[in-house]
Design a protein around this nucleic acid. Sequence first.
DNA 1: TTGTATGCATAAGATTATTATGTATATTTG
DNA 2: CAAATATACATAATAATCTTATGCATACAA
Lengths: 117, 117
Amino acid sequence: MYIWFMANSKLYKGSLVTIILKLLNESNKMYGYEITQKVKELTRGELKITEGALYPALHKLEAEGLLEVEVKKVDNRLRKYYKLTEKGNKETVSKLQELQEYIKTMQVLVNPKLSLE
Amino acid sequence: MYIWFMANSKLYKGSLVTIILKLLNESNKMYGYEITQKVKELTRGELKITEGALYPALHKLEAEGLLEVEVKKVDNRLRKYYKLTEKGNKETVSKLQELQEYIKTMQVLVNPKLSLE
DNA sequence: TTGTATGCATAAGATTATTATGTATATTTG
DNA sequence: CAAATATACATAATAATCTTATGCATACAA
């Protein structure tokens, strides 16, 4: 993993958990590397998910009971498949709401013609 | 400053500089406390700007040459009025573009029906 | 056979914020 | 009038999250 196109915006700080939860919500189960590739694909290489951020985040979500893990060996290589628990499903809904509220609030702050209804 | 309604979302991390620059871009000059009150007003108390975040951020922006400061004494109390430098104006445009791109990217990640044009 | 891709992991350091203090004056309220 | 709140600045300790760097290992392509 030598070259990365990066979004280079500090705004993504805090978004990683939301991204992980939403991707897992869409596709039943995914493994870490798959998540990095999916994000790369969806954002056309614009957004990098670094391993140093991803793996600790997955471990934390698992420890919090939001994800459960299943280890599989494919082509003689390990994969750790993650899927949402029931608690994880609820948290996903909550995180997506937070994201919508964040976007709405920021648009109000940044566009003086808008207001919070 | 005893009670604060807070947005309680980690997504705001990284947004403070964008907020400060945009507010100064709209209103010529503002002082720190005024910024906290303006944000509170615009977001109807939803978003808190803590002093421990605000003042260091203002100092940093000044050190980077994005803001210039003018100290005034009003009602026997100090106010440090900040305004954008030319460099600060350019950075404001850049930060606002970053915000729009962030929002677009996140909507793609979170809404699988959308795509980057 | 060397580099790239796949697949995991963690440690050091940077950045940004929260929380807790501290100082000081002005104004409101019981 | 005393106490609480509002105005106005500031910084230090701590927490959270990320980047960068490194490490291990297998598979595949040039």
